[in-house]
Design a protein around this nucleic acid. Structure first.
Lengths: 183, 183
DNA sequence: TAAATACATGTAATTATTTACACGTTAAAA
DNA sequence: TTTTAACGTGTAAATAATTACATGTATTTA
């Protein structure tokens, strides 16, 4: 029971905060949720349809401008209950992170491999950029304590992501510094 | 080009160290590789067949006991070259970690939610156990410096995993301690 | 006002991954 | 010596996820 369709719960969770369109949901995966889960619109629209068939969400049509129809989805009482249950049951499976760089490292046997410095420097750039981006988001999304209290979980996961990237950057720097000097 | 069949490279990388059977490869995903990638035997056997059709690996049959046939796979010259290329090209995509617990946190809005302490404590147990297990592996796999030098990449990823879990545990403890006292 | 970008919703095809089915051997423990 | 666990190799079915196809509207910028 590894996957169990987590996407449905994420959608329910997002809709439980406020009614959204499929397009809005898709965008949510580009920001904070995207830090921990990804989904394309081609996965989201069919999932919304299924959730509606099962009675967990409903939609109303609104019209923007002259004729553009939007479907604004919101959770039903049973949908909210399903969400509550998902959050309440245990989460005993630690899924392994699929990190391609780390995977490559495994196959490098010598600390004198000439590719190592370049590889680590590339990751250092990427993870430093990400860290900067996350810290920036923290200041934008949580400028004051009232907002932290109103969206505590969101605050926690941003804080967690920052700490995680910070560790990654620290580890990369250390690893780079520990490499033998080039001959 | 998000996925690009990384499994094939992992298999090539493992076979490049020493000839292995499909069964051996499957087991490798239970230990260190499993820390960063998972695959079942139902994925591995067909992949081995495809790699052989493409000329990247070959196999020889050995017999264990009276009649148990094993297929021992090893990489070809072109297979080794494909592996080398994969390691050498850049790794610019930071794939998001899919962490179900963190996902659930996002939908908890108040730091007074009665489920929070229980949820964090469960994760604390899980990640502490994992940390203990990883540290244990470090002492078992790398008892001396010579082994570290011979398998530097393997050492690095174990060290990285330990640091990552250590951060996770620290963050969970901190988060638990920062929760408001129960009423 | 024309063009570009963002908004908006879907389906089809392909690939990746998991779970279940299926069969047989060998070595170790009870 | 029997039975259990580990060894060993595969396929089938279902689900998850990505990429490509397909179409049209509204708003903003040049």
């Amino acid at each position: 029971m590894a996957q169990k369709n987590k996407l449905q719960f994420i959608i329910l969770g997002l809709l439980n905060q406020q009614p959204l369109t499929g397009y809005d949901l898709t965008k949510a995966f580009d920001t904070e949720i995207g830090e921990f889960w990804q989904a394309q619109h081609s996965q989201i629209y069919p999932q919304l349809k299924r959730l509606e068939e099962q009675g967990y969400v409903t939609h109303e049509i609104t019209v923007s401008g002259a004729k553009l129809e939007k479907k604004l989805y919101h959770v039903t009482a049973t949908g909210a209950e399903l969400l509550r249950q998902w959050i309440t049951v245990g989460t005993p499976d630690l899924t392994a992170t699929k990190d391609e760089f780390i995977l490559k490292l495994y196959f490098i046997h010598s600390n004198r491999d000439p590719r190592l410095p370049m590889m680590i420097q590339e990751q250092l750039r990427l993870h430093t950029d990400k860290l900067v981006h996350l810290r920036q988001r923290m200041t934008v999304v949580f400028p004051d304590k009232a907002l932290i209290e109103a969206h505590y979980g969101h605050y926690l996961i941003l804080q967690h992501a920052i700490g995680r990237e910070n560790y990654y950057v620290t580890w990369l720097k250390q690893t780079l510094a520990a490499l033998p000097a080039e001959q």
